[in-house]
């Protein structure tokens, strides 16, 4: 079954890492990856008549990413396909429709998008966080993550049901309660000793933005919220 990945991007360098990690997670399943750019809708009526995504994105950066992907696909014999989507303006209903259209199995957010100063990008990040779709937030040093073998599931609420969702991933998910009380001690020690590549967390019902989640953010690892 084809897996679908949505990557909200500003076409910065870390988009390449997002592409690489997405294909690594869904390798062999001919994933459909969509690079999604988001921009504010213009206030000017005349500009609205001639909406063109090219005016709202850095075309040279986009071409660089596409060129990287084509080379990577050829070299690594990737089966995944990449497509582009530009979203003009965003609201909760628009976001819902966009997600219904793509139905992504995972949303991978590069750090450049997370730290984008643009209001619409921050708003999109908040909507991604509160949506039901699994979201992976990449850290600044994501290029050092070569592949994901083991993930640590941090679930303070001890929700049993969450462990069903994590079985679908190709990496081994270790629930924090499996190693608590053993010789590992703190979460950081667990991360180091167990060679953890990814932190998995359940989505919070209140939908707090991830930058508030300092505990997981300090490990320098990608964070997957499900």
């Amino acid at each position: 079954m084809k897996k679908k990945v949505l990557i909200p991007t500003t076409f910065e360098e870390d988009t390449k890492t997002a592409l690489r990690l997405a294909t690594d997670i869904y390798q062999g399943s001919a994933a459909e990856i969509t690079l999604c750019t988001i921009s504010e809708i213009s206030d000017s009526i005349t500009e609205l008549l001639f909406l063109d995504a090219k005016d709202h994105i850095d075309v040279s950066k986009r071409d660089a990413i596409i060129s990287f992907w084509n080379q990577h696909k050829k070299a690594a014999h990737e089966k995944a396909e990449v497509s582009l989507h530009h979203q003009f303006g965003l609201s909760q209903p628009k976001f819902n429709r966009m997600m219904e259209r793509f139905e992504p199995d995972m949303v991978v957010v590069p750090q450049s998008f997370q730290q984008s100063p643009e209001y619409i990008h921050q708003f999109a990040l908040r909507l991604f966080h509160t949506s039901r779709y699994p979201m992976m937030l990449l850290p600044g040093n994501a290029e050092t993550v070569k592949g994901i073998q083991r993930a640590l599931y941090l679930d303070e609420s001890q929700q049993q049901a969450s462990s069903v969702a994590v079985q679908q991933y190709p990496f081994h998910v270790i629930h924090k309660s499996m190693v608590e009380g053993q010789e590992y001690g703190s979460t950081r020690t667990i991360v180091e000793k167990m060679q953890i590549d990814l932190i998995v967390k359940p989505k919070r019902k209140k939908g707090l933005p991830v930058e508030h989640d300092r505990d997981a953010g300090t490990f320098g690892l990608p964070i997957l919220t499900i």
Binding site: S163, V164, H175, M178
Partner: peptide, 9 residues
């Protein structure tokens, strides 16, 4: 070799 046991409902 890592062997884990977990459960859902």
């Amino acid at each position: 070799v890592l062997v884990t046991l977990s459960s859902s409902e």
